[in-house]
Each structure stands twice: as C-alpha cells, then as structure tokens.
Simulated assay, not measured.
Amino acid sequence: MNTQTIIQALQAVREQKPLVVNLTNYVVMNNTANALLAIGASPIMAHSREEMTEMMSFAGALVINIGTLDNVWTPRMAFAVKQANLNNKPVVLDPVGCGASRLRTETSRQIAKAANKLIVRGNASEIIALAGEKGQNKGVDALDSSEAAVDAARYLVGEYQCCVVISGEVDFVVTNEGLVQLRNGHAMMPYVTGMGCTLSALTGAFAAVGEETGLAAAAILGVVGEIAAEQSKGPGSLQLNLLDALYQFDEETLVQRLKLV
C-alpha cells in the first residue's frame, strides 16, 4: 500500500465513474451523495428491496450504513448484501454506533458475517465493539483512541477476511498484509455530522474500481479535510470547502501533503 496505489485508484474512479449503491442513514444522504459526485463516482441512494437484485447486477459496490437503523432497514440490508455476494461486489460496512445498543451491535455483526468481500470503516469504539470487546462510546461518538482499536481490527481481519479502516486523530488501515497509519485530517472535521459516513461512501467508490483496502479513501479525505479546514471559519463552511477540495483534488496535492507511515 503506497502513494502510487492511491493515485491509480483516483484515476480509475474518475475514468470509470462507478455506480455506488448506498443504504445509508437519513442524516447523511445528501452529504455522501455530493462527496461521491465530487470525487468522480456516481451515487444512488437505493433502499427498495424490489430493485436491489437489478441494481447490484451492474453497480460497482454496496455501502451499508446502519446510522438510522430499524426493523424495516435490517432485512433490506441483509437482502442487499446477499445480492452483492451473488454478483461478487464489495460491501463497505459502516457500523454506526456499534456498541451503543444491542440492536446496532448484533446487526453489525450479522452484516459482517454475511458479506463475502467486506471492508469495515468505523471509529475506534465501533471497531472494538464489533470485535466483541467493550469500547467506550457516547451514542455514535468514539471515546477510544484509534490506536486502542488496532488489535480489535486485526481480529476482524482474521475473523471476516476483510479490511478495516479505523478513523480518528490517526487513521489506521489494517489488512492481511499489515498496517498503515495516516496522519492527515483536521480537528474541525468531527464537528461536521457524517464525516465518517462520507469516508465510508468514498471507500465504496474506490472498492468499486478494485482498491479494496480502504487506503485511498482515507488518505484522500484526510488531505482534503486539511485543505478545507484551512479555508474555513467553522464547520458550516468546512462542508462546502470539503466538496470543492474533493472536486479539485489531484496527484500533486496528494504527493505534497500525504502523511503515510
């Protein structure tokens, strides 16, 4: 996993414009759709079981975000994962609030177990809870450091044969091949709702073109977050500047600013 991998993945997304199917929460649909458009992908917020078989036959990836979970969404998510498996498509799981309630924890584990080509993207507390340990969270917010979740992420990689992205002050990408740290981003980013959800959606775009580790999305959003924060007075303008920075993002910017360890 290196800078060239990220550059090639970005080029592929912009050339192929993959369709990313999102079963995501009501809070972030607009944010994540706009972020996917800005990076060059094609988003669709598809929640109907009736169209999912057809949709997953030609989409590039499926993103499952459990943020506004209920007994209507859960069977839809399970069916969507089944269709993704049948079509050999990657599934990105964002286990929002995993550990905050039994429903969220059990649903997250069911989806992780069901998906054949899985990428998990969550904050430290969610990753720890998904692995069966006791994390510290307050609703959907993490109270654990990303470093504290590395062992849990390694467990998930082995248990589900997946890749794991831990979001935090330092982002970690954990795969069978090892671990990468990303030290970009900005302290203002957690003050915008759905920033992690945006990362999950972008992870789906890159997975659709074959970058299934989560590295490219995490690296690019971290750098873009820094750039947007430098131009912003607060979280409101950060949201707008983030989309502009995603749209304008290029290879030169990545090489100059990426902090990959």
Rank of each mutant, 00 (worst) to 15 (best):
A33R: 03
A80V: 01
G236D: 14
I128S: 04
Q136H: 12
E147A: 11
I127S: 04
P190N: 02
C197W: 13
M1V: 01
I44H: 11
T24F: 13
S125V: 01
V120W: 13
S125T: 00
L118W: 11
C162K: 06
N30W: 02
T3I: 14
L246I: 01
T32G: 00
R49P: 08
G210L: 05
S125C: 09
A229Y: 09
V157I: 01
L215A: 03
V140I: 14
K82I: 09
L179E: 15
A148K: 02
L143Y: 13
N71A: 08
G225T: 07
L156I: 07
A245Y: 11
K138P: 04
N87D: 05
T105W: 06
G67L: 10
N65L: 02
R49A: 14
Q181F: 00
N116K: 14
I128C: 06
I227D: 15
R183P: 11
A149Y: 11
A205V: 00
D70W: 03
T175S: 13
V20E: 15
K113W: 03
T74K: 08
V170F: 05
V261I: 10
L199N: 12
A35F: 09
A12S: 13
T198L: 15
E169Y: 14
N87E: 12
V192I: 09
E147D: 15
H47L: 11
N65Q: 01
V27C: 07
V174R: 04
P95T: 00
N31Q: 14
V96F: 13
T203H: 02
N116R: 11
A208E: 09
H186R: 11
L242K: 05
V150P: 10
L260D: 13
A100R: 03
V174Q: 08
T105M: 11
S237T: 12
I220C: 06
G97D: 14
E126F: 06
V91H: 02
R257V: 04
A80F: 07
A9F: 01
N30V: 01
Y160P: 01
N22E: 05
G185V: 09
E211M: 04
E54K: 02
D151W: 06
N87M: 11
C162S: 10
T203K: 04
P95K: 04
A245I: 06
Q181P: 06
E51G: 01
L156Y: 13
S42I: 04
G185I: 10
